[in-house]
Design a protein around this nucleic acid. Structure first.
Length: 505
DNA sequence: CTAGGGTTAG
């Protein structure tokens, strides 16, 4: 087995092999041992080969120069013709590993015939920002500045990373220096700054800055919508309403976005009377609600388990003549499923969506599959999964498999769990996420196969996914019951060293 | 640079 394959994400089952206990059904063991190499999707054959080489060459703890050297000295890498798309995918692959990302970038730059797109540089800046390597980021941006390669998009990445890390003053400082990058302080760049601050719950600061800049830069309708969102995010709907007035004072008519933002805030406060009042107001004053408005309300009612009420909202929407879209239908199907109206959901899926030209996506299928599983019609769920695979319009994701896996556990069919996991990894190149690991570990423990659960736990750690405290405790208890001393010690060790995620709620 | 799902889980 090559190192390359070991490095791949989602080699869950592969890693299980040495651990598979004899108590597991033989079919499971057989399934686990036949995993083939998975490939990242959407790459053509030659790009795929390059990908494998590069990813295989990049070590875990190397410096950027080591990565660069290794790639430069590799024959296969030197023969490569690099496309922007491939560089983009590589940077994305190393988005959490800035050293490797910079090494790859540097190597790509040195390749004959290759010139980076702005997008690649921006991604590098973003990766450094994500890692909070501020000095390296500034250094990198300086270089870009020299080559006049800094765009407003670059600035956006910098600002958002600073603000996201709580360094909002730095975000403002970048705005102040826009001129140095050959960019203007205008409405567009100001809105970017204000939006960044508002999204990081710094609406007050944004407000102060707007007042400062007002005499130089004219706000537009976007500016006010940004503030409406900012106030709502801070749960200060009074100020948001006040901003609507201010907007009017500046000669801008509040639009469907302005109102929908406020409606969302009312929904979160469960102030549904106010929601409906605002809906009526919108209809009356010529900014009628759209699909997004209605979907927002329905989703919120769903969250409160008010499915019948949510369905009334859908009826109201259809009566209003508003054009439904995919997200609306996904929400509607979800609602119908939760309300136990399977035939109606089927009709929406099979008839209404195609007729009204709403495209069906992964989430649509996921909702239908979850519905069937929930109502013990797994065969229909599996049929839909097959349909998804052959349709080529959309592919399954981890959420597609959750209800299917749950059904297997419910039936006590562990063999099927193994089959499904194998399919996820090999056929669809999916890697398990934190919630899937947590779920599997929990259910495997309950099914008295904590050996398997422990393997997944190890796998999780090796993928740098932090287990929840509760998961550790559960597994530890099970492992102790089975006298798996070594595993128990290891779990205890991990609990001490790894920063554990607090349990949800 | 402005608005929207879901989930496996008591």
């Amino acid at each position: 087995m090559s190192l390359l394959i070991q490095k791949r994400i989602g080699n869950t089952l592969l890693r299980l092999k040495p651990w598979v206990p004899t108590s597991l059904p033989t079919t499971v063991i057989k399934n686990l041992s036949t995993v083939s190499e998975q490939l990242p999707e959407a790459l053509d054959e030659s790009s795929q080969e390059i990908w494998n080489v590069i990813v295989g060459r990049v070590g875990d703890r190397d410096s950027e120069d080591e990565v660069f050297d290794r790639l430069s000295n590799d024959e296969a890498c030197n023969r490569v013709h690099l496309s922007d798309g491939l560089v983009h995918k590589l940077l994305h692959r190393f988005r959490d590993d800035w050293k490797s990302a910079l090494g790859v970038l540097k190597w790509a730059e040195s390749c004959r015939g290759h010139r980076h797109s702005n997008d690649s540089f921006d991604m590098a800046v973003d990766i450094l920002g994500k890692a909070k390597k501020w000095d390296r980021m500034k250094e990198f941006v300086e270089r870009l500045r020299g080559d006049q390669l800094v765009t407003l998009n670059t600035i956006a990445k910098i600002m958002r990373r600073f603000a996201g890390a709580g360094e909002w003053e730095e975000a403002v400082a970048i705005f102040d220096k826009l001129g140095e990058f050959g960019l203007d302080k205008n409405t567009e760049s100001m809105n970017l700054l204000l939006d960044t601050l508002c999204k990081e719950k710094r609406v007050e600061q944004a407000r102060v800055i707007l007042l400062e800049l007002k005499s130089h830069i004219t706000p537009n309708a976007h500016t006010f919508n940004i503030f409406i969102h900012g106030w709502c995010k801070a749960n200060r709907v009074e100020e948001a309403l006040w901003t609507i007035q201010e907007m009017k004072g500046h000669g801008f008519r509040p639009c469907v976005i302005s109102y929908t933002t406020i409606i969302r805030c009312y929904c979160q406060q469960s102030e549904f009377v106010k929601v409906y009042e605002m809906l009526s107001e919108m209809e009356a004053n010529g900014s009628p609600p759209n699909s997004i408005t209605y979907t927002t309300i329905m989703a919120s009612l769903n969250a409160q388990k008010e499915f019948e009420e949510a369905l009334r909202v859908a009826t109201r929407m259809k009566r209003s003549g508003c054009q439904p879209d995919t997200l609306f239908y996904n929400c509607l199907i979800h609602t119908l499923a939760r309300a136990g109206r399977l035939e109606e959901a089927e009709r929406v899926f099979r008839v209404e969506m195609p007729e009204l030209g709403a495209s069906i996506n992964t989430s649509t299928y996921n909702s239908m599959i979850a519905m069937y599983c929930h109502h013990d019609e797994e065969h229909k769920a599996i049929e839909l999964l097959k349909e998804m695979e052959s349709s080529k319009l959309c592919n399954p994701d981890v959420h597609t498999y959750h209800p299917l896996l749950k059904s297997c556990f419910k039936r006590g069919d562990v063999v099927e769990v193994g089959k499904l996991l194998k399919e996820m990894v090999t056929k669809h190149h999916l890697s398990l996420d934190e919630s899937t690991y947590t779920f599997l570990i929990q259910r495997l423990c309950r099914a008295n196969i904590c050996e398997w659960a422990y393997c997944l736990f190890e796998e999780m750690i090796s993928q740098d996914i932090t287990p929840r405290h509760r998961t550790c405790l559960l597994l530890l208890e099970e492992v102790k019951k089975k006298n798996m001393h070594e595993s128990a010690e290891r779990i205890e060790h991990i609990m001490k060293t790894v920063k554990l995620t607090a349990p949800v709620k």
